[in-house]
Amino acid sequence: MQVHEEIFKRRSEGGGSIEIICGSMFSGKTEELMRRLKRARIARLSIEIFSPKADTRYSENALVSHNANSISSMQVSKASAILAPGNQVQVVGIDEAQFFDDELPAICNALANNGVRVIVAGLDMDFQGNPFGPMPALMAIAESVTKLHAVCVVCGNPALYSYRLVNNNGQILLGEKESYEPRCRLCYGL
């Protein structure tokens, strides 16, 4: 009976959850993450936003979308830094999750188990079409997964791949339109 009472108490206080926003580059993942976080702010929920220190493309203290929209954030070097002891945050946003270490799913689970709504955005596949970083594990434990598609620059169909334009075989290559373009399944193979 005590377990049921604890579950009821958590639900009435706003139970935690994990939401994943994934897709290719230029699909609007960061825009969607920011939209959800802004709605949480409107609802007067306390939020914290994190991004990996490895992503140096835009800003050290803000998430910035390809459309130049931004929201304040904190860069951290590893997933365990996201857990702030004693913090009463209600919503945690995490961008570029594919760049975090494999501890991220456990961190997200711990936050959700403590009643925090966790919203995670990241690439689900690398430029070779392979699952990327901790994203597959996060997708497996999430209550919801939203897969966004860009527009294929070759044919105009929905794009789910990040096609690399430059000659570099490393899994991680930070870049923009000079390095990547979105492509559909058919045009990705061209």
Rank of each mutant, 00 (worst) to 15 (best):
V166M: 11
C108M: 03
M139H: 05
L104S: 06
M139G: 08
R36W: 10
R57E: 07
V118D: 03
K177P: 01
L33V: 10
N109I: 07
A106T: 10
S70P: 00
G86Y: 03
K78I: 08
L33G: 11
R36I: 10
I18Y: 00
F127H: 05
I94K: 00
G16C: 05
S162N: 03
N114P: 00
K53M: 12
A79N: 10
V118A: 05
V3M: 14
N157D: 13
L63W: 02
M74L: 14
D124I: 04
S12E: 12
R183F: 02
K177L: 07
L83I: 15
V92Q: 01
I141K: 12
R183M: 02
G93Q: 02
G14F: 12
I71P: 11
Y58P: 13
A121P: 01
K38V: 13
A40D: 02
S70G: 07
L138C: 08
V92M: 03
R39S: 13
S144D: 14
S46C: 09
V92N: 01
S51Y: 05
N69W: 12
L63M: 09
N113K: 06
G14N: 11
N109L: 15
A68V: 01
T56W: 08
I107Q: 00
Y188S: 03
P105C: 08
Q128E: 14
D126E: 06
M25G: 11
G28Q: 02
K147M: 11
N167C: 09
I71R: 08
C22Q: 03
P85E: 07
A40E: 01
I47T: 12
I141Q: 14
G16P: 03
Q128L: 15
Q75W: 03
C187N: 14
